[in-house]
Amino acid sequence: MMMTEKERLGAVLAGATVDRPPVLCPGGMMSAATAGVLRQTAGNRHNDPAAMAEVAETIRAATGFENLGVPFCLTVEAEDLGSRVDPGGAEVEPRVAVYAAAQPAAVMARPLPPPDSPSRAAVVCDAIKLLAARHDDTPVIGNLTGPMSLATSLIDPLVFFRLLRKDPAGAHVFLDYLTEYLAGFARRQAAAGADAVAIADPTATGEILGPANFRTFVRPYLRRLARTIRAAGSGVIIHICGDATLLLEEIRDMGPAALSFDSVVSMRKAQTVLEGIPLMGNISTQVLHRGTPERIGQAAKHALDSGVSILAPACGVSLQTPLANLRALTDTGRRPR
């Protein structure tokens, strides 16, 4: 039986059997809006829903990834909550230039943008609506910044990390506030037609926080978001940066989500601990950027042989990555197994 791309992703995220793993680049932190793609598009892809949807469609056409993903950065929520964002350009992704405040209380005292305002979150939801209306068979993936990464995009990470130890209760109040906001944004993405929502929390790594802090300050919030998204009817992907091998025990119970890992993680080893959880990954983004198409095809085959449920880049894709290299990844992934 031949599945559509949408059916295939839906089945994988629900833990059902599929004909072969889908090959994805969800968007957000893991976006394939490379210089090669952007040469084929115009318009303000970060602030105009039509331009955003068009870039997502161009990525799919130019690279062969089996999804449509928006947005193309990890700054949407931070900007809506008060940080100043430098939009970057064709070679540099948007990034936080000035933090919203010095302390969490000042962020929480600020009113949230109303749902009907032209916030960046609204742009993302409108783009999802456009994409969902135009594509019956290709899944639309919305993206979310994880709570720890959002907290450290709003106030200086070094200030927030100190709070984890100096004022754990205060840190929890802030993370809880941000998680509620993110849950609302995720529900709007699901309602707009996102088949799945991918959460990336690149600050919440084993190397930065360690297992104990991850258990206390990361897992409960990601789990809450995963359940919220599932309850809203969409699939969930959680990307964990860095060496998640340090956290294997901690991430066994992340709620109803597929887990995406960086290239340092051995997928075979991860599977032995995370049995039954769909794993996504983990083609080195350096190999994608600088390797030959042949080498990338081999890496993709190796990932498939080690049993990934979803074939994907391992982390943020360099904007200078050649389209032929992304094609080499998707061509290998699309071959029947």
């Binding site: 070094l158 990390f161 100190r162 984890l164 130890r165 100096k166 190397e207 930065i208 926080l209 360690g210 802090n213 340090l246």
Partner: peptide, 14 residues
């Protein structure tokens, strides 16, 4: 040795 992580090192440095 992965006994301390960034939050801990920051407070030690303080």
């Amino acid at each position: 040795r992965e006994e301390y992580f960034i939050p801990e090192v920051l407070l030690c440095s303080d």
